[in-house]
């Protein structure tokens, strides 16, 4: 990870990702917050690319930048009288404090620990021309149970969401 391009890309994308996240916090309007959120997600997808996660990066764009914002848009539009105010609640100070504490702790630990870094040696050694195939193999091989559970979870979520918002004919 010493090529200049990667370094520049990392810093730029990190700045956009974190800046976008802060934008979500500061934006006064939910839709604007959503725009910032998407910006942050896309930058994170870029970060994934620098981490050799080609499949994950594209899945990230598909789900986080394409699908979830649309869900949020629908939720905002289905609740028109609730307002689109992105204001802060009672827990502003504790929230900020906790967030800062977590960030500082993680950063401190990350910097302090000797990770004995062997950058990408294993990935290079295995020579994944593409991660997509390998991920697919892992999903239906070693992780097939988890995969099935995840699919059941998705189905349950689908049905649950439909049942929750279904408008009763009778009432």
């Amino acid at each position: 990870m010493e090529s200049l391009g990667i370094i520049v890309a990392f810093y730029l994308l990190s700045a956009i990702a974190v800046g976008g996240a802060i934008g979500v916090f500061l934006a006064s309007d939910l839709i604007r917050a959503l725009a910032f959120l998407v910006l942050s997600f896309i930058a994170t997808a870029g970060l994934f690319l620098t981490l050799s996660g080609d499949f994950i990066a594209i899945a990230q764009i598909l789900i986080y930048a394409g699908a979830i914002p649309v869900l949020i848009v629908f939720a905002v539009m289905l609740a028109p009288l609730a307002g689109r105010n992105n204001g802060n609640g009672l827990y502003l100070v504790p929230g900020l404090a906790l967030g800062a504490a977590v960030a500082v702790t993680v950063a401190f630990v990350a910097v302090d620990v000797e990770w004995n870094e062997l950058s990408g040696a294993l990935l290079a050694e295995r020579d994944f021309a593409t991660t997509a195939g390998a991920i697919g193999d892992a999903l239906v091989g070693r992780y097939v149970l988890a995969f099935e559970i995840a699919s059941v979870l998705l189905l349950a979520a689908l049905i649950g969401a439909i049942v929750l918002v279904r408008e009763d004919e009778a009432t």
Partner: peptide, 28 residues
């Protein structure tokens, strides 16, 4: 100058911290 695990984890921590703050502080 390199980018290694620590850098990524720091960014991850920052994102997580902002996420926590939003999740706790927002009313909506």
């Amino acid at each position: 100058m390199t980018v290694d695990l620590a850098h990524y984890l720091t960014v991850s921590g920052l994102l997580f911290g902002v996420g926590i703050s939003i999740a706790l502080a927002k009313r909506n």
